[in-house]
C-alpha cells in the first residue's frame, strides 16, 4: 500500500525542463533514496511535492487524496514534512524555541499527540523532548543556544526536529548528510533507522551514496529531470544510464 505516489510530475523554469514525467510511489515505513548529479531536479522534485513550487503537470497523491496544487502549509498539515537543503532554522530564536512554531501549527495542536494543548510551558517541554530524541544533549546548554550559534551538525538535526515536531507521516530530507563529517553522519544513520522504526516514511535525497545505500530500501536515480532508474541500490548503480550520468560517457 503506497502512502504517497507521484504521477508524471513536470516543471519548467523558463525554457529549462527541471522535471519531466517523474512517477514513483513510496510505501508506508519505507526509506526511498533519490540520487542524481547536480541539477538533475532532485530539489525541484521535493519543492513540487511539498507545494513550495507549483508543478506544471502531473499529480501528487497522499493516501489517495490529490494534494497536487495545495499550498505548502496545507500539505505540511496533512503530514508531509520536509527539510531544506540550505538550512533555514529561525536563527534569532534559541534551538528549542525553533520547535514551538511547528508545535503551534494546527496539526500538532489538533493531533493531540503532544500533551501541550496550548499551555506555554508544555510546548517547551515537548520541544526539549524532541531535541533530545534527535541527539541534542538535554542537560547541556545546547538546546538553549541561539540557532545562529549552532554548528552545522546541530542545525541539520534541528531541521529534522522541526519536521518531527509536526508528527509527520512522510519526511522529505534534502541532503541531510551533506556538510557533515564522517562521524556526524555515522551518528545520523541510527537516527534515520529509528525514525523508520517509528513508522515514518522517509525520502532521502543524497549525494553521499555509501551512507545512503546503508539505510535506503530502494533507490531512484534522476537525471535532467527524468527518472532513469529505480530499484535496489545494486541494480541501480549497475544501470548503464546511471553510470553514464555519474561518470560521463565511456569512450570505446
Amino acid at each position: 500500500m503506497s502512502i504517497l505516489s507521484v504521477e508524471g510530475l513536470g516543471k519548467t523554469f523558463g525554457g529549462l525542463k527541471a522535471l519531466s514525467g517523474v512517477s514513483f510511489s513510496v510505501k508506508k515505513g519505507e526509506i526511498l533514496g533519490v540520487i542524481g548529479p547536480n541539477g538533475s531536479g532532485k530539489t525541484t522534485l521535493i519543492n513540487c511535492i511539498t507545494g513550495f513550487v507549483r508543478p506544471d503537470e502531473g499529480k501528487v497523491l497522499f493516501k489517495g487524496a490529490d494534494i497536487t496544487h495545495w499550498r505548502a502549509h496545507r500539505i505540511a498539515r496533512v503530514g508531509v514534512a520536509r527539510t531544506f537543503q540550505v538550512m533555514r532554522p529561525f536563527y534569532s530564536l534559541p534551538a528549542y524555541k525553533n520547535l514551538i512554531i511547528p508545535l503551534w501549527s494546527p496539526r500538532a495542536r489538533k493531533d493531540g499527540g503532544w500533551r501541550g494543548g496550548g499551555k506555554h510551558g508544555d510546548r517547551d517541554t515537548v520541544a526539549i523532548d524532541i531535541l533530545e530524541e534527535i541527539g541534542f544533549e538535554r542537560d547541556s546548554r545546547v538546546p538553549y543556544k541561539l540557532a545562529s550559534t549552532l554548528p552545522t551538525g546541530y542545525l541539520k538535526r534541528l531541521e529534522l526536529a522541526r519536521c518531527l515536531a509536526l508528527r509527520p507521516e512522510v519526511i522529505f530530507c534534502d541532503e541531510v548528510f551533506s556538510g557533515l563529517s564522517a562521524s556526524e553522519v555515522a551518528s545520523m544513520l541510527p537516527l534515520i533507522e529509528k525514525l523508520k522504526m517509528g513508522g515514518i516514511t522517509l525520502v532521502l535525497i543524497e549525494h553521499r551514496l555509501r551512507e545512503l545505500f546503508k539505510v535506503a530500501d530502494r533507490i531512484m536515480a534522476l537525471q535532467f529531470g527524468e527518472k532513469i532508474a529505480e530499484g535496489h541500490y545494486k541494480d541501480v548503480i549497475e544501470d548503464p544510464r546511471v553510470k553514464e550520468a555519474y561518470l560521463g560517457i565511456e569512450e570505446v
Partner: peptide
C-alpha cells in the same frame, strides 16, 4: 517572530 525570521520554514511547519 519566526515569520519575520524565515517564512519558508514557517510554511514548512504547517502554518
Amino acid at each position: 517572530h519566526a515569520v519575520k525570521d524565515n517564512d519558508q520554514s514557517v510554511r514548512a511547519s504547517g502554518i
